[in-house]
């Protein structure tokens, strides 16, 4: 078994894992379980990042998504005590339609994206995912977006705080 084969099997296993977890996110009754399945999916995706040699993104993915965002989700679910499994039934036709719609979307997109491989002729170059290279790009080419994202965060913070605090009238 060559390393290539190993990579392929790893990809397939992780991919299957991700897809199954994602499906469970959608179909699980209990929101807490959904969160945990989503975390699993994120881990699988992180694995794919590592396959792609993007270690930095992989780590950041865990820190941001699994470590912060999903914890926040769990926090809110627990805070509001939303873990009831009694979700009122949505119209089964609607559910059916949802499945069909997304299935069609999948078929359409995949169908038209097939054989994209040949088009992108640039040979793969290693090491782009390393932090030095990313920093190089981030702080030169993408400096402005980096700065602007601070405004994004500021706005989000102000907004969240504004909504969260109780009005003293």
């Amino acid at each position: 078994m060559t390393q290539d084969h190993l990579q392929k099997y790893l990809f397939l296993v992780l991919g299957l894992f991700a897809v199954l977890s994602a499906l469970m996110v959608v179909f699980t009754k209990n929101p807490v379980h959904s969160v945990l399945y989503l975390v699993l999916a994120f881990f699988a995706i992180t694995g794919e990042y590592i396959l792609l040699n993007a270690q930095f993104i992989a780590i950041v993915n865990i820190i941001v998504y699994a470590g912060a965002i999903m914890v926040l989700f769990l926090f809110v679910i627990m805070l509001l005590n939303l873990n009831k499994e009694t979700e009122p039934h949505k119209n089964p036709y609607l559910k059916f339609a949802a499945v069909i719609t997304s299935g069609l979307l999948l078929i359409v997109i995949v169908g038209s994206l097939k054989a994209a491989d040949n088009a992108i002729a640039t040979p793969y170059q290693g090491g782009k995912g390393l932090i030095e290279n990313l920093a190089e790009v981030l702080f030169h080419q993408f400096l402005l977006p980096f700065e602007v994202s601070s405004i994004l965060f500021l706005a989000a913070m102000v907004g969240a705080v504004m909504l969260g605090k109780k009005d003293i009238k």
Binding site: I59, G67, V71
Partner: peptide, 14 residues
């Protein structure tokens, strides 16, 4: 690993 600190942060956050 060259991002050891981040690794620690990640694990801590998990």
């Amino acid at each position: 690993i060259n991002i050891g600190i981040l690794y620690i942060m990640a694990i801590t956050s998990i």
